[in-house]
Amino acid sequence: MTKLDSILHEYTKSHVIRYANRFDSRVHFDRSLIKTATSLGLLEKIFTNSRNSPEGLHALAISTEEVSKYCGNTRNFFLVSCGMFGKTLERYQGENDYLNNVYSQIKIGGAIGSVAYTETGGNTNPKSLKTHLSKIADGSFILYGHKTWITLGGIADFFLVTCLYEGELAIAVVPSLAKGIKIDLIDSLAGNRGSALADITFDKVILDKNQILPTICSESSWPAFEWIFSVGRVYAASSAIGLTKSCISMCFDRLNSRHSLGKKFIENQIWQQELAKANSQLRAVEAIRNVALDYLGNNKYVFLNSDCTIAKNLGAEIAIQSSQLNLKAHGAFGYLENEEPNRLLREALSFEFIEGSSLVLNKKIFSQLVGNLIVNKGNK
Rank of each mutant, 00 (worst) to 15 (best):
M1C: 05
M1T: 09
I7L: 14
Y11P: 00
T12I: 11
T12Y: 08
K13I: 05
A20S: 14
V27K: 08
D30Y: 11
L33H: 01
I34Q: 00
A37S: 10
A37H: 01
A37R: 00
L40W: 05
E44N: 14
E44V: 04
K45S: 11
K45N: 11
T48C: 07
N49P: 03
S50P: 00
R51I: 14
G56E: 04
L60E: 06
A61D: 10
A61T: 07
T64S: 12
T64Y: 03
K69H: 09
K69L: 02
F77C: 05
L79H: 13
V80S: 06
V80H: 08
S81L: 06
C82R: 02
G83C: 07
T88N: 09
T88P: 04
N101C: 13
Y103C: 06
G110N: 14
A111H: 06
P126Q: 11
P126T: 10
T131W: 04
L133E: 02
L133C: 04
S140L: 07
F141W: 06
H146V: 12
T148N: 08
T148K: 12
I150L: 00
T151V: 11
G153A: 08
A156C: 07
D157N: 13
D157P: 02
F158M: 03
F159Y: 15
L160M: 15
V161N: 10
C163G: 07
C163P: 02
E168D: 13
A172L: 10
L177W: 14
I181Q: 05
I181H: 05
L185Y: 14
I186G: 02
A190F: 14
G191L: 08
R193Q: 14
A198Q: 05
D199K: 14
T201Q: 09
F202P: 01
I206Y: 04
L207D: 02
K209G: 05
N210W: 05
L213C: 10
L213Q: 08
C217K: 12
W222L: 14
W222T: 13
P223M: 03
E226C: 10
F229G: 02
V231C: 05
Y235V: 00
A236L: 10
A237W: 02
A237M: 09
S238W: 00
L243M: 13
L243R: 03
C247Q: 00
C251R: 08
D253R: 08
N256E: 13
G262A: 05
K264W: 06
I266T: 03
I266W: 02
N268S: 06
N268D: 14
Q269N: 10
W271L: 07
Q272C: 07
E274Y: 12
L282K: 01
I288A: 03
N290D: 15
N290L: 09
V291G: 03
L296T: 08
G297T: 10
V302S: 14
S306A: 13
T309I: 07
N313M: 13
L314P: 03
Q324N: 12
N326I: 04
H330K: 07
G331Y: 10
G331W: 10
L336P: 00
E337V: 12
E340T: 12
L344Q: 04
A348F: 01
L349V: 13
L349H: 06
F351C: 08
I354H: 01
E355L: 07
E355N: 13
G356H: 08
S367A: 15
G371S: 12
G371L: 05
N376M: 12
K377A: 15
